[in-house]
């Protein structure tokens, strides 16, 4: 088994864990963490695909995409945190209370 295969399988598992977390976690912060884990899975799959040809250099295009992707994911996570804290400030809710 090659290194890139291990990590591409890991990336699929991480993505599914993230999706499950987005659906099933209740607290806002956990939902945000779940989205970041989903993003991590996607980035891991991209980088592991870049490493699959055993050349001197790995494919630089996915690396560049992942670098911009990480920074964008952080900006969106910061926005989500701001929303969550604002909702908490105004209503005192820590999660979406649909099932009440």
């Amino acid at each position: 088994m090659e290194t890139y295969q291990i990590y591409s399988l890991t990336s699929a598992v991480l993505f599914v864990i993230g999706i499950g977390g987005v659906f099933m976690a209740r607290h806002f912060i956990k939902k945000i963490i779940a989205t970041i884990i989903m993003g991590g899975g996607v980035f891991l799959s991209l980088v592991s695909f870049a490493a699959r040809d055993a050349l001197a250099f790995a494919d630089p295009v996915p690396h560049a995409l992942v670098i911009t992707g990480i920074v964008v994911a952080v900006a969106s996570a910061a926005f989500a945190l701001a929303l969550a804290r604002r909702i908490y400030q105004l209503t005192g809710e820590e999660s979406f209370t649909i099932d009440k």
């Binding site: 295969q5 591409s8 699959r52 040809d53 494919d59 630089p60 295009v61």
Partner: peptide
Amino acid sequence: LLISLEAVWEIPSGGGLTELA
């Protein structure tokens, strides 16, 4: 999970933009 594991396992080798870059 099964579908995505299958998808990442079956990804074809080759291609990529390494040489061009």
